[in-house]
Simulated scan of single mutants.
Amino acid sequence: MSSDFAQPAVSLGAGAGPTDVGIARATALFERMDPAEAARTLEPVLAADPASVAGWNLMARLRLALDDNQGALEAANKAIALAPDNPSALATASRALTLLGKHEDAVTTAYRAVIADPRNALWHDRVAWALLAADRQFADAEQAARTAIGLDPNEPHYYFTHGVALEALGHTDQARQAMLTSLRMEPENPVAQHRLAVLNGEATREPTPKKRGFKLFGRKKS
């Protein structure tokens, strides 16, 4: 699994230009869990080629990883300005808006990603979490989570999302079953383990870890 939203692979064939090479280097650093160095590597690439949608998408993801939510939003918005229907940029912007507490904009932007690419489960999952973070429209969040499962039934995270949405609706038994399904597929996930323990009355709920959303919204194969 790669971190955050799936990034299209950069082809480094004979015709690869300096932008492609720079993005590939930054992506490799990101995959090695060094977002700070990846961002430093990417900055001159974007200075030389500010029209690179892939570059701004990657920079937005890097800024999220560095807890620079405003910087992530600005980078995502630059990608959106270049490609208004780019779903990855829209979803990353939505994530940044959620973290900035701008929930209405986060929900709207997440739905734009779904409209742009309705067959990608990631964007439906982003809608679900935008609504959950906004603490409203839990039925819509549950529907979005269910849609994500229908599109990608082999991804354990989507069952986790569904469980959280069901819990928000007060459907504790169904939420427990969703968490169990997620854990059968990914037994070592500590967040799902803890959430199930809370549902079973075996643990006390804790505040959601700040970095949790980074895993949630995209440790997903492209």
Rank of each mutant, 00 (worst) to 15 (best):
M1F: 13
S2Q: 13
A6R: 13
A9F: 09
L12C: 05
A14C: 05
A16Y: 03
D20E: 14
R25T: 11
A26H: 02
A26Q: 00
T27R: 02
R32L: 08
D34I: 04
A36W: 11
E37P: 06
A38Q: 06
A39Q: 02
L42S: 02
E43T: 14
A48G: 14
D49S: 15
P50D: 14
A51M: 07
V53G: 11
W56N: 01
A60T: 05
R61K: 09
L62A: 03
L64H: 01
L66E: 04
L66R: 05
L73P: 05
L73C: 12
A75P: 09
N77L: 01
A79G: 12
A79S: 12
A81R: 01
L82P: 04
N86W: 02
S88Q: 10
A89I: 09
A91R: 00
A91F: 08
T92E: 04
S94T: 05
L97T: 02
L99N: 12
L99H: 09
L100Y: 07
E104D: 15
E104P: 03
D105E: 14
V107Q: 11
T108F: 13
V114T: 11
V114H: 02
I115W: 10
A116T: 03
R119C: 06
R119P: 03
N120D: 13
A121P: 04
L122F: 06
D125W: 06
R126V: 09
V127S: 07
A130T: 00
F138P: 00
A141T: 02
Q143F: 12
R146L: 13
A148Q: 05
I149K: 03
D152S: 10
N154D: 14
Y158M: 08
Y158K: 07
H162M: 11
G163E: 10
G163K: 07
V164I: 15
G170M: 08
D173Y: 09
A175S: 15
R176Q: 15
R176P: 12
A178S: 15
M179E: 08
T181Y: 08
L183Y: 13
E186K: 10
E188I: 05
E188L: 12
P190A: 05
V191K: 04
V191Q: 12
A192P: 06
H194W: 04
L196N: 01
A197H: 00
A197S: 09
A203T: 09
A203C: 10
T204M: 14
T204P: 04
K211E: 15
K211I: 15
F214I: 11
K215H: 11
L216A: 09
K220L: 13
K221I: 08
